[in-house]
Amino acid sequence: MSRPATRRAWPVLGALVVAALLVVVAAPTYYVNLAVLALVYSLLAMSLNLLMGYAGLTSFGHAAFFGAAAYAAGILSLRYGVPFWPAAAAGIAVGTLLGAAYGILVAGSRGVYFLLITLALGQVTWGLTLRWVSMTGGDNGLPGITRPDLWLGWPLADVRGYYLFALLIAGICVALLALVVASPFGHALRGIRESPSRMRTLGYPVWGYAYAAFVVSAFFASVAGVLYVYYNGFVSHQNMQIAVSAQVALMVIIGGAGSFWGPAAGATLLVFMQNLLSSVTQRWMSVLGLLYIVVVLYQPSGLAGLVTQIRRRRAGRPEERVATPAVLPTAGDRNGWGR
């Protein structure tokens, strides 16, 4: 984000905050529930965007960290009666540590290798969760997790109070993510996305940067997982399925990988679509699959790319082509792809 763009973004940001606060007072309960989900998945998608959009590492296993954090917090609170804050901290720690462990295995890979290894790791984590019945409840999952007994101008047990809480936590995380993205580290990630070999020549420890990005991303995904489990009161292996990882990746792509706010827009769009469509059809997975195909075919740069295209057209420069984000490299770009 360049500086003038940031200055232009302030009124938009202000309007967003006002709108987000208005939801609490004005929206019907059903939409407040959806808004909580939108916040949770926005945070999850933005955490994945750090990898996909900024570092150019497309992961199909992100649900593993989300789910591990949710399970850990859920198990501690349900089986051991651990209060909210320590259980939440432990959940985030477990998800982040899992990221730190998996990061060792994937930080040296790029492109399709990275994608398929994260997919395999995500599936293995899911399989373990499903079969480790004595700990995770297997197919039945863990029902009956209660919302924290806190008060934030509104009791958190009520969904409106929980929404405010989620808004606060997600807001803090987004601010932190903005700092990460704007830092020299964030710029180095973009450099790695464009050309790992050049960055290596310049003396950047590419492995270390990719590893750090992976762990940071897992940390924010874990925060989203903990927010989710206390909202939902229930966690099951379905929260770890590849469908979740694929859906989050699609949120990033639909929003526009590498744009800061795009993934949040993609997440909100998909959350509302899924819940509004669920009253019409049971075939959400088909819709998701078709969306994948349509987006890749017609709008690979996502909503963010669409906005750029419209702006350019207004400015009378329709000929200019919009840069496709690094997740969809062109034929000539073999950097880090395959071999």
Binding site: V112, L115, A246, S286, L288, Y292, I293, V296, P329, W337
Partner: peptide, 13 residues
């Protein structure tokens, strides 16, 4: 990557 994403779409569908 576009091709792999397409195959993910087909997997779900």
């Amino acid at each position: 990557l576009a091709q792999v994403l397409l195959t993910m779409g087909f997997l779900l569908l």
